[in-house]
Design a protein around this nucleic acid. Structure first.
Length: 101
DNA sequence: ACAATGACGGCAG
DNA sequence: TCTGCCGCCATTG
């Protein structure tokens, strides 16, 4: 476990309901501005071991770019359940929902 | 132990 | 403006 990983986990756990963060934003706050992929990896693997709100993390466009379709739909449902309005292309209005720590 | 990969992002062309 | 390539580095096979 690295400090970066811990930071990422902490940040994700801090995201309130009804808000979202982007991968790049998390990477930046965790100390590695270009390490979005690590955030992805951490989310992917850690969400299984820890209970992380991974569904509150979207890409820089506010869209969900997950490969696994089951998880993709699950994320949409969870976001809607928390009050996040999704566009016709399942995109989040980051101006409105982006969480700033 | 080593190589490939991965829910992305930014800069270059 | 839009497309594509490269960086990033922990985790997984």
């Amino acid at each position: 476990m690295t400090p970066f990983t811990e930071n990422v986990i902490k940040l994700i756990k801090q995201i309130p309901e009804g808000r979202v963060m982007t991968y790049g934003q998390i990477a930046r706050l965790a100390g590695s501005p270009r390490a979005a992929r690590q955030v992805v990896r951490i989310l992917h693997s850690m969400s299984k071991k820890y209970r992380l709100p991974w569904h509150r993390v979207v890409n820089a466009e506010g869209k969900i770019v997950i490969k696994d379709e089951a998880s993709y739909h699950e994320q949409i449902l969870k976001l809607e359940a928390e009050g996040v309005a999704l566009g016709s292309l399942n995109e989040v209005n980051l101006e409105t929902y982006r969480w700033l720590p």
